[in-house]
Design a protein around this nucleic acid. Structure first.
Length: 811
DNA sequence: TCTCGAAGCTTTTTT
DNA sequence: AGCTTCGAGA
């Protein structure tokens, strides 16, 4: 990324800060060799980039004005249209690079788009400042206007892990049983709300009550307050804050509306309500919105995507043009026929019919094979891969696409024994690893002393004897004084609340951070990073660790520092990481890919293996339980995505027996098998002696009597969960007792963001000299001197001690 | 405060 | 079955 800080307008961008309205946009001096200059130089020869487009694609590129929905079926050249369109807008001088907003969902997609545009325009895409993910664009906007939504421009971005830990604290602070009401569960609910752009005040009463005996709304509110104290935003907030900003500050919105002359959204079927609202606000000033997507490939409903957005496009954006791209350039006619027939079982589609000229008599039919269990499945697929390999097919052109990641294991096992190269895509990501997150927490504490979550993570990693008891004290001070943990800790070590051992340990940690913070300015950030990990004892901790993973972790830490080198500063690096959690795994070796169907979207392979087509696994039972018909349709789209990944060969498998959660279960073939067109499918011969399931062969009649929506509903996990939830309601009014004493000191929860930065001396103690007070640990005593919020007290039993005022009570 | 054994969860994933 | 998380004892 050329712009590590994400909010640095070094490009030739006449951005006007809020308030200074641009009445007539000044034309900036064009930089020699800049993207616009080059693009405009290419003007007059549009045929260059338009050549080779089919009529529909060309129309999609040239319909620049007004709302446009491009329904791009699988393999119809969607990305090509998107990038050519941008090139076209630039080349015809309709807009300058920084006047185009182009949104994608993943960083990978953004990167690819940048590369391809660069290909058209000749190298330099720097000027495409507003090409990125929803989130990265929001961050960019927010950094500029943070104050308007109650944040400071330096706000940090919480990842899922931080979020869960924070929620957990809030649930505990509420005195709720954090087992019954798990942080994870609430995070999910919260996510749902934020995806729908609902603030604490907007959620429906019923929904707010459903969690934690009606405390849902309160928890939400408290969570948001904590975030603002921490000067942090979670992923959902990035969008929501921008929406709020746009709504409350029409002048700011207007600036952006004016700036973005053309807007493009990729994968529109994956947008959620918040993203839709975001786009709508921007589009109010300017109708040139082009959304590209495929309703048949909407597979992220479970994380808030609204297929409705794409289905309603014509309604929402008046006068919209709809263009269908139906000519498929990827797959054989058999594969297309299979996919099309399958997806036709879905209702409520916008409807596309993919076609291709790519049809030869020797093309393979889509194959369906029955196997005994997952081991045989892996064995069979392994053999087929080896057979193809001997025929000269590249492993890179083969992929095993599974429904759930636990299925990957049997393939890995098998491929290892066969000595077959494979790579797993989408496994645990680099930046999610424990050691990386720990290291990052150290860096975060250095850069942002108020990053409580980071501090908590590493105070006692490696072990320093700073256990729960000590942390609780620090927390107490922080909460009472409304200051960050580190600041609270530094106050605490001036007193005698702590025993000498933890006190020294804590002092040591704080001194270290102070020193590192000073070094930050003098030293190269990579060098400092190494120093931090060394001096903190973190590296040493893993060196001492005798477990098998330890050496790998040390390698990862080295890799982390190496990757920091690409960034200009620690801050730039941290920003990048919080938004870009993926890592380029540009691996040159020839290998079979193993991945989930979800992560396969957008990819293509000559040969695709689709194992595990069994009822309960695919379609997944939980999807059916939770979302009924809609769930089934989404699963079907997933099947469609799977099949359409194949260029030449699609091979489907189902096992009669599968071990799920350690339990062997016999399984029925997926209903999706019956939805494949007989003419384009062959039933593969059982490759091993005990092939086949139950009665042999699969027949369409099998499921006729099998309505998934009224069978066995009393034993499904969903029903059981519902039962459990119901029975638990009512008698969990507990958590009384010690809670009330604690609550007293918390005071009002409405806080101005600035209070966070307040230092001790500003808040004089409410106690007076000579006053008799009670301290939980030291007992009764009289105040001898006051220094800010630190009191020196002569205790009747414990003698003279220095303590913090929030730990004593008047008596 | 740390370490070990027991007890719970396990769909899909990005930012 | 296997991984993480939690609670009891050293």
């Amino acid at each position: 990324m050329a712009d590590p800080n994400g909010y640095d307008d070094s490009f030739d961008d006449p951005f006007q800060p809020v308030g200074t309205r641009i009445e007539s946009a000044p034309v900036p001096a064009r930089r020699e060799g800049g993207i616009a200059a080059r693009a405009m130089a290419a003007r007059g020869a549009p045929s260059d980039y338009l050549a080779g487009l089919n009529p529909e694609q060309r129309q999609a590129v040239e319909t620049t004005e007004g709302p446009l929905l491009v329904l791009a079926g699988a393999g119809t050249g969607k990305t090509r249209v998107l990038t050519t369109r941008i090139a076209h807008i630039l080349a015809t001088g309709r807009a300058r690079p920084f006047e185009i907003l182009a949104v994608t969902f993943t960083n990978k997609a953004a990167r690819e788009m940048k590369e391809r545009i660069a290909g058209f325009v000749g190298g330099n895409v720097e000027g495409m400042a507003w090409l990125g993910t929803f989130h990265s664009i929001c961050v960019k906007i927010l950094r500029k206007h943070a104050e308007l939504v109650g944040l400071k421009s330096s706000f940090s971005i919480l990842d899922t892990d931080d979020q869960i830990r924070l929620i957990k604290q809030i649930i505990q602070a509420e005195g709720l049983d954090d087992k019954r009401w798990t942080a994870r569960a609430f995070a999910g609910i919260l996510d749902g709300w934020k995806n729908r752009a609902l603030g604490p005040e907007d959620i429906a009463e019923g929904e707010a009550r459903a969690f934690a005996n009606g405390k849902g709304r309160k928890l939400y509110r408290e969570y948001q307050e904590r975030l603002s104290i921490l000067n942090a935003a979670d992923f959902g907030d990035l969008l929501l804050h921008v929406i709020t900003l746009f709504k409350k500050h029409p002048d700011v919105l207007k600036d952006y509306q004016r700036r973005f002359r053309y807007m493009l959204v990729d994968e529109y079927q994956d947008t959620n309500v918040a993203q839709y609202l975001w786009l709508r606000l921007l589009a109010q000033g300017n109708p040139n919105v082009c959304c590209v997507g495929d309703d048949d490939q909407s597979i992220y409903g479970w994380r808030g995507a609204e297929v409705d957005n794409i289905l309603r496009f014509e309604h929402d954006f008046k006068g919209a043009t709809v263009i269908r791209l139906e000519r498929n350039y990827r797959s054989t006619s058999h594969i297309l026929a299979a996919a099309s027939h399958l997806i036709s079982f879905n209702e409520g589609r916008l409807g596309k019919t993919l076609f291709t000229d790519f049809s030869e008599p020797d093309h393979d039919l889509v194959s369906v094979a029955s196997v005994w269990d997952s081991e045989e499945e892996a064995r069979t697929i392994g053999e087929e891969i080896e057979a193809l390999q001997t025929k000269g097919h590249s492993l890179n052109e083969m992929a095993v696409l599974v429904r759930a990641s636990f299925q990957m294991r049997s393939f890995e096992d098998r491929f290892v024994t066969l000595g077959l190269n494979y790579r797993v895509i989408g496994g645990p990501r680099f930046y999610e690893r424990l050691e990386i997150r720990d290291a990052m927490a150290y860096f975060r504490c250095v850069v942002q002393p108020s990053d409580d979550l980071a501090f908590e993570r590493i105070v006692n990693t490696p072990k320093r004897g700073l256990g729960e008891a000590t942390i609780k004290l620090v927390h107490g001070v922080a909460r009472a004084e409304r200051i960050p943990l580190m600041q609270a800790a530094s106050q605490l070590i001036d007193t005698e609340e702590l025993k000498p051992k933890p006190r020294n340990a804590l002092k040591n940690v704080l001194d270290n951070f102070d020193r590192w913070r000073r070094q930050l300015e003098q030293m190269k950030h990579t060098e400092l990073a190494e120093i931090i990990l060394d001096e903190s004892g973190y590296t040493e901790m893993w060196r001492q660790d005798r477990s098998a993973e330890a050496p790998g972790r040390l390698d990862n830490l080295k890799e982390l520092i190496r990757s920091m080198d690409e960034f200009e500063s620690m801050t730039g690096f941290l920003e990048h990481i919080s938004l870009v959690m993926d890592r380029d795994s540009a691996d040159a070796t020839d290998a079979v890919s193993i991945m989930t169907l979800h992560s396969a979207k957008g990819l293509e392979f000559d040969t695709v293996f689709l194992p595990g087509w069994e009822e309960g696994l695919f379609p997944h039972q939980r999807s059916l339980d939770e979302s009924g018909r809609a769930g089934l349709e989404e699963e079907r789209r997933l099947a469609y995505v799977g099949i359409t990944r194949a260029k030449k060969r699609a091979k489907i498998y189902f096992a009669s027996n599968r071990r799920i959660h350690g339990q062997w279960q016999s399984s029925l073939p997926s209903r999706f098998l019956d939805e494949l067109p007989v003419d384009h499918v062959e039933i593969a011969e059982p490759s091993t002696s005990y092939g086949g399931y139950g009665g042999g062969g699969y027949g369409p009649s099998r499921f006729d009597s099998h309505d998934p929506f009224d069978t066995g509903s009393y034993s499904t996990p969903g029903w059981k969960r519902a039962q459990r939830a119901r029975s638990s309601e009512g008698f969990s009014e507990g958590g009384r007792g010690y809670q009330s004493a604690r609550m007293k000191r918390q005071g009002p929860l409405t806080i101005e963001g600035e209070l966070v930065a307040k230092s001790v001396s500003d808040t004089p103690s409410e106690y007076s000299l000579g006053e008799r007070v009670f301290h939980i640990k030291f007992g009764y005593g009289a105040i001898k001197s006051i220094e800010g919020n630190k009191l020196t007290i002569d205790f009747e039993k414990a003698g003279v001690k220095k303590v913090i005022d929030s730990f004593v009570e008047r008596h």
